[in-house]
C-alpha cells in the first residue's frame, strides 16, 4: 500500500464523494416526490392517471439505471433535449427511484386494512383525520424499512454514473487506475468512501425504523 499516493489523491475522492452525495440527495428527494405522487394516484385509483403510473412503474423498475442514463444522456440530445451530465444523473435517479419509492409507499398504504378507515369514519372522523391519525402512521411504519433500503440502493446505483462521464467515486477510481496503475490503493479508497457515505445512512435508517415501529401497535 502506497500511502503517499493515497494522500495525494484523497482530495480527488473527496470531490467525487461530494458529487455522489450531491446528486444522490437531489435525485432521491425528487424520487420521493415522484413516489408520493404515484402512490397517491394508485391508492386513490385516479382514473387514467393510474394506468400511466402503472406503465411508468413497470418501465422504470424493469430497466437498469445504466440503460436509462444512456437514453437520457446519449439519446435525448438527438431529439433536441440537451442536459448537463449532472442533471442527467439527477433525472436518472429520480426516474428509477420514483417507481421504487412509489411501490414502497403503496405497499404501506395498502397494508392498512380498509376496516380501519371504515371504523374511523363510523366514529365520526373526517377524511383528513382518517388519513392523518389512522392510515398514515401505520402506513409509514410499514414502508420505512423499504424506504431506507431504497435510499441505500439508489446511492449505490450512482456507481454507474461513470458511463455518462460524471466523475463520481467509481469513475475516479477507474481513472486513477488507468492513469497511474495503483489498483490496490485506488480500490481501497473507493471502498472506504462508499462505506463513509452509506454506513451513516444505514445506521440512521435502522434507528428511525425502530422508533417508527411503535406506530404499528396503535399508540
Amino acid at each position: 500500500m502506497n500511502w503517499e499516493f493515497i494522500e495525494k489523491y484523497l482530495p480527488m475522492y473527496e470531490k467525487a464523494a461530494l458529487l455522489t452525495v450531491k446528486i444522490g440527495i437531489v435525485g432521491i428527494l425528487f424520487a420521493i416526490l415522484v413516489g408520493l405522487i404515484c402512490a397517491a394516484v394508485q391508492y386513490y385509483k385516479v382514473p387514467v392517471l393510474r394506468w400511466i403510473v402503472a406503465v411508468y412503474v413497470e418501465l422504470s423498475r424493469n430497466t437498469p439505471l445504466l440503460v436509462q442514463l444512456f437514453f437520457i444522456y446519449y439519446g435525448f440530445p438527438k431529439i433536441g433535449i440537451r442536459m448537463s451530465a449532472e442533471l442527467c444523473g439527477v433525472v436518472g435517479l429520480a426516474f428509477l427511484g420514483g417507481s421504487y419509492m412509489a411501490e414502497s409507499f403503496r405497499s404501506g398504504l395498502e397494508s392498512v386494512e380498509p376496516i380501519q378507515s371504515e371504523s374511523a369514519i363510523s366514529l365520526g372522523m373526517n377524511s383528513r383525520q382518517v388519513l392523518g391519525y389512522v392510515i398514515l402512521p401505520q402506513a409509514m411504519s410499514t414502508s420505512i424499512p423499504a424506504f431506507v433500503a431504497n435510499i441505500i440502493f439508489l446511492l449505490k446505483e450512482t456507481s454507474v454514473f461513470s458511463a455518462i462521464s460524471l466523475m463520481d467515486l467509481m469513475f475516479t477510481a477507474k481513472d486513477l487506475i488507468g492513469l497511474y496503475y495503483k489498483t490496490t490503493e485506488s480500490l481501497f479508497l473507493l471502498v472506504v468512501f462508499y462505506l463513509l457515505i452509506l454506513l451513516p445512512v444505514s445506521i440512521i435508517g435502522s434507528l428511525v425504523e425502530r422508533r417508527m415501529r411503535y406506530a404499528g401497535f396503535g399508540d
Binding site: A163, I164, S165, M167, F171, K174, D175, G178, L179
Partner: peptide
C-alpha cells in the same frame, strides 16, 4: 480514461477541462 491523450493533457495542459469517458463508443457518441 486511461489513454495517452489523457496523461499528456493532464501533464502539459493542466488548465484545460477534460470530459472523460470510459469507452470509445460513448466518447464518440
Amino acid at each position: 480514461s486511461g489513454t495517452t491523450a489523457e496523461t499528456y493533457l493532464i501533464a502539459n495542459y493542466p488548465d484545460i477541462p477534460l470530459q472523460k469517458f470510459d469507452s470509445y463508443a460513448t466518447a464518440k457518441e
